[in-house]
């Protein structure tokens, strides 16, 4: 019996020391991790809408209830007035959810840029959605017209060239853009 207590206490001491060690490292790294998450979020926001003094999360103002596609709405302020809107959207791709950021400019009523921030698509095919060669196709599209994915060189303004052999992924991104576009049209275009 005494032996069991001795062993138990020993294990407890080992686990306690291990816990303390982890807590110490956690204390050191926690602020860095938090700062970094914020910074990477802001820097990807800047990639889709560069010209902003301040970016505020206003999801609750512009999204009534839960939306299947739109996760977050951030408004970019310039000189104290709203200048652009950044949508965080998630749609179903080929291998799982595709999460992207869609930026709009309020004055020109056009998209600024689209950036795919997380995906689990097939490497070499759908995963190319993160590359600029695809996402650049979404730049400066009129917010009034739905974006359409085409497999040949686009001829109309609202068309975007699909990724070769990854139409489902391309469409997933376009679906996200269109959902954001509809919300943008009803909230920011008078």
């Amino acid at each position: 019996m005494r032996n069991i207590i001795k062993l138990g206490v020993f294990l407890l001491v080992v686990a306690g020391l291990a816990g303390l060690g982890i807590a110490y490292v956690n204390g050191l790294t926690e602020p860095i991790i938090a700062g970094q998450l914020l910074e990477s979020k802001l820097s990807s926001f800047k990639e889709v809408y560069a010209d902003a003094d301040e970016i505020k999360d206003e999801t609750d103002t512009y999204l009534k209830g839960a939306d299947p596609v739109i996760a977050e709405i951030n408004v970019a302020y310039k000189n104290g007035a709203p200048a652009g809107v950044i949508y965080t959207v998630a749609t179903a791709g080929y291998g799982g959810p595709v999460q992207s950021l869609v930026g709009f400019d309020i004055e020109s009523q056009q998209t600024t840029a689209v950036k795919v921030i997380s995906q689990t698509e097939t490497p070499g095919l759908g995963a190319k959605a993160v590359e600029n060669s695809f996402s650049d196709g979404f730049k400066n599209k009129d917010a009034a017209r739905p974006v359409e994915i085409v497999k040949k060189e686009p001829v109309q303004g609202n068309q975007v060239l699909a990724i070769t052999a990854a139409t489902i992924t391309s469409k997933a991104v376009a679906d996200g853009v269109n959902a954001a576009r509809e919300n943008f049209m009803s909230n920011f275009v008078k």
Partner: peptide, 30 residues
């Protein structure tokens, strides 16, 4: 380390170091 509980002790020690590496990598090599 008593012989009869060496394996659980090893697991705790290894898990502690893994968690530390995990946190450090999260902070410095995101």
């Amino acid at each position: 380390i008593p012989d009869s509980i060496r394996i659980p002790s090893y697991i705790v020690i290894v898990a502690a170091f893994v968690t530390m590496i995990d946190l450090i990598m999260h902070a410095y090599t995101p």
